[in-house]
Amino acid sequence: MKGSIFFVLLAAILWGTTGTAQALAPDTAHPIAYGAMRLAFGGSVLFLFVAFQKKLTWANWSYSHLLLAAISMACYQPFFFSAVKLTGIAVGTVVAIGSAPIIAGIIEWAFQKKKPTKYWWSATGLAITGCIFLFLNDSTVTIQPYGIALALGAGLSFALYTLASKQLLETHPPDVVVAVVFTLSAVLLVPLLFFYDLSWLFQVNGIVSSLYIGIVATAIAYIFFVRGLHGIRASTAVTLSLAEPLTATLLGAFFVGEMLTGLTWIGVTFVFLAMVVLGKQPTLGTEK
């Protein structure tokens, strides 16, 4: 249980760097093309990794869950990066990741008959409250309804990806699940690349940013995430992913030089308390 929480938190920390990585990419990098390249690099590395280890197999897959996970992840990329482009890193990340645990908990409750635990309710409430305080830090933000809608679409996509991946982990190792899902997702997005200018990819900051977000913030991060899913509920894992906006905020403070207000530190404290609450949760199977 504790190890599972650690892996999911580590994944969320790496995801927290994606907004900064996108900001460092050339201005001509369209969000949809950037998201597609993220999956292309990440999926390729993962596929080669499991193929080299001879762990790849096409037997015993639940193809309905595989397709749902792949489509969800393919949709998440343009939704998330477009939302960040329109609303800014803070708002886009907070709305996307902040809505995901609520959606995941509701889906588990409605379709899998898994009533959310008191720990999930408490942690989700604390984390979302913290994210609200993080959001309030940016007084210059302009709320764009379309951008918010895209961020909510990203939250739904992430929740569905997590729930579907949880089912796939019952029959296949974490690295194989991520490799197959992300490779299929990349294939689904490849046709979109023909509609966008990719010249930015040949600039130094373009290729470096793409390689980083594909290999580190995708391939490695999602292996950590699905490995952590083994010992905790999908809704709990999604709540833990709220460490992503926390990471993004702290990176802005310590590496970009952004000033953190008192409201921001209150938000950081709430999100941290949410992680503590989930850390106290009983082992999967004994939750009440």
Rank of each mutant, 00 (worst) to 15 (best):
T117C: 03
S157D: 14
G3M: 04
Y146S: 09
T18Y: 03
I128T: 12
G267V: 09
M73S: 07
A36E: 10
T117D: 13
V84K: 05
L250E: 13
T183N: 08
I148E: 10
S157L: 14
Y222C: 07
G125N: 13
T183G: 13
W61K: 02
A217C: 10
T218D: 06
Q167R: 08
K115E: 10
I220C: 01
L152P: 15
K85Y: 11
G35F: 08
T286K: 05
T264M: 14
A127H: 13
L168Q: 03
I215V: 14
L24H: 03
L68C: 04
G267M: 11
L9E: 15
V204D: 13
A219P: 12
V177K: 10
D175L: 08
T283R: 00
F6K: 02
S82M: 10
T140W: 04
T28R: 12
Q112W: 12
W121H: 11
V204H: 11
A100S: 11
D138S: 04
C131I: 10
S139Y: 07
A69E: 05
G262I: 15
F52V: 11
A123Y: 15
A151E: 15
L188T: 07
L193I: 01
P116E: 13
F7M: 09
S62D: 15
Y119S: 13
V187A: 03
G42D: 07
G206K: 05
G98R: 09
T162H: 05
Q144G: 02
G279A: 04
F81D: 12
Q53C: 01
L184G: 06
V238L: 06
I5M: 08
A83H: 08
T283K: 03
G147Q: 08
L246W: 15
